[in-house]
Computed example of a mutant assay.
Amino acid sequence: MRTIGAPLAVLTATALSLTACAANEGTSAAPAGGDTTAAQTSTLSGTLAGRGASSMSVAQQTWIAGFQTANPGVTVNYSPDGSGAGRESFISGAVGYAGSDRALKDDEMGAGKFAGCTADSNALNLPVYISPIAIIFNVEGVDELQLTPDTVAGIFAGQITNWNDPAIAATNEGVTFPDAAITAVHRSDDSGTTENFTDYLHQAAPSVWTEEADGEWPAGFGGESAQGTAGVVDAVTNGVNTIGYADASQAGSLGVASVESGTEFVGPTAEDAAALVDASPRIEGRPEHDYALELNRTAEGAYPIALVSYALVCETYQDAATAELVKAYMTYMLSDEGQAAAEEAAGSAPLSSTMQQSLQSAVDSIS
């Protein structure tokens, strides 16, 4: 977990500055493209506005700081007002790019639908940020936990209610579980984390979890609710014999379960979460360089519970200066340095080199 997590203090300090534009200063980030002299020679200038998902707000601020260090003449502003607000602003042309916890749907796509793009241009969905979602637990006397998809679904659906249930014991040989009730904690607010978690349950355990994926917890499934990621983590930490789900970077000292994926049990490591993206097919019928994905949460060996956030951009921009800034900023996001910086600051899982190369080809096609 230390390889994908960031200290909570760092995350908190960073989050305090999210609504302000990042300063055009810094000392450690290398320039986009790996040219260590670019900070002195870059002629790129202008202001780029972005808006959208709060899930990647820490990563965005980290990317902005590194990019602006390499390009002192550029200011990038990102307002983390939520995925829906980001999509609306991108469609209306109010921002040059947006962040979204889901790709644009088929009926949202199409030439002529985006005010900032040319009339013959569609949008591109680029999966730039992967955030593993951990199943966190606080169970007396238990340090490690392995769960099958059906068991996870049974616990959160309220069908498995005691920690000494045979279904739990079956995949945890040698572990002594207390004869105690399970307190399963879920989000009380509408969240991308819940939508991705319930999508996993529906795909991996459809006979148990019969509900479709949704950002709101289904009524009648019981459990304890808490507001936001911090609320779930606090409830699991301060409760007794509790279990919940949250961004892996926020798990802290809590136990983190491994889940069955094919013939093995995997945890929310960066490598296994990135494997989910690589194993997921692109949605058919989209533009050549669009990378909207159908997440395959049953892929062998991949960690199946992760949130994938997209950058929404134009194929062709009406304003050439905006296109230049978008291409340069997206290139920095996708670079080894950009992905590593986000991993350190936000606990995200870096894209695989294969996916980086594919997305860079998409960015290169922007005009």
Rank of each mutant, 00 (worst) to 15 (best):
S83H: 02
A94K: 13
D81L: 13
T148D: 02
A111E: 01
D101C: 08
D106N: 03
P72S: 15
S83N: 09
N122C: 04
V74Q: 03
E144C: 05
M109Q: 04
G112I: 04
G82C: 03
D150W: 14
T69Q: 15
G82P: 13
I136W: 07
A98T: 06
S83T: 03
N71L: 01
P132V: 09
D150R: 06
I130H: 02
G112C: 06
N77C: 11
K105L: 12
V95H: 03
G93D: 04
S100D: 03
L145T: 12
N122H: 02
D106P: 03
S92L: 04
G112A: 10
D143S: 15
V128M: 06
S92K: 08
A103V: 07
V128D: 04
T75I: 12
S89F: 00
Q146P: 09
S131I: 09
V74Y: 05
S92N: 06
A94M: 13
L126Y: 12
R87W: 00
G96V: 04
S83E: 08
T75H: 10
P127L: 10
P127H: 10
A111C: 05
D150E: 09
N77A: 02
I136T: 12
A134C: 03
G84V: 09
L124C: 03
A70I: 14
Y97E: 04
T75W: 01
T118M: 00
G99M: 15
P127W: 07
A98I: 06
Y97F: 15
P132L: 11
G110K: 11
N71F: 00
N71Y: 02
S92I: 11
Y78W: 07
D120V: 12
T69E: 11
P127V: 15
A103M: 14
E144M: 14
Y78V: 03
A103Y: 07
L104E: 05
S79N: 01
S92D: 01
D150I: 12
P80N: 10
F114N: 00
S100M: 00
N71A: 13
I136G: 10
M109T: 05
P132E: 06
R102F: 10
A115W: 02
D107F: 10
V128E: 08
T118Q: 05
Y78M: 12
G116N: 07
G116H: 07
I91D: 00
G141R: 13
T69C: 11
A70V: 15
G116L: 03
V139C: 05
A111H: 02
E108C: 00
A119W: 01
P72V: 09
F114C: 04
G110F: 08
S121I: 01
G84T: 08
N77P: 06
I135E: 06
V74L: 10
N71V: 04
N77K: 04
S83R: 00
G99Q: 12
D107N: 10
Q146G: 04
F137L: 07
T148Y: 01
G99W: 13
N122K: 02
I136L: 15
